[in-house]
Amino acid sequence: MNFYGVKAIYNFEMSRMRRTLMQSVLSPVISTCLYFIVFGSAIGSRMGNIDSIEYAAYIIPGLVMLSLLMQSISNASFGIYMPKFSGTIYEVLSAPVSYVEVVLGYVGAAATKSVILGLIILATARLFVDYSVLHPFWMLSFLVLTAVTFSMFGFIIGIWADGFEKLQIVPMMIVTPLTFLGGTFYSIDMLPEIWQTISLFNPVVYLISGFRWAFYGVSDVHVGISVGMTLLFLVACMGGIWWIFKTGYRLRT
């Protein structure tokens, strides 16, 4: 195990994130605050409780998930795309690091940052809404698992992307809609039956549902299914990365 190699990549990525603190921490925090103000305070005050939870509190897990998914993907995809774009990737490719180590460094750093960001958003939410966490262990577990999984997903996108456009397109065109339709602002039960069924094909539903369960003990689907689905995505992303490195896809000509 090339421990120093992993550490070098990890530290490099973390210092890149520190340089872009405004963009990487402040902007998600601000946009989440806006959601709280608009949906939580302004509209939320006229909404009834869902599953006997105050609306403003109900949307917190979903909003955190939204930022977590977006940030994990964009951190990790930029992290690996930039060296590809600038050509500095040559150094990683020529170094005595295995692909597991490369992933540990890049994905580890991206996930770390997402988790920190998630916690910051949770702390910020506290300023607007009084909420409690019923299962702190599971809350953290979901946070970390999701961050890791979607950082891996971002890593795959970063390798696949051959332009900045592709880098943006997946988070914008796929993840945002899936998250909005994944029960951030409502319970799946509130939808007509047909849409409930369709929703079950949306992977984000399971993430949000499980995460919300960790907060309030209520969920759209059983928490066991949420954990299972999250692990399933994790394994799928690992498989994708394994394939990329095995074939050298878009990394080695």
Binding site: F3, Y4, G5, A8, N11, S15, V92, A95, V97
Partner: peptide, 12 residues
């Protein structure tokens, strides 16, 4: 930092 990074990457 860049030079230190390279050293670390190579496992030293």
């Amino acid at each position: 930092n860049a030079v230190s990074f390279s050293r670390g990457l190579f496992g030293k």
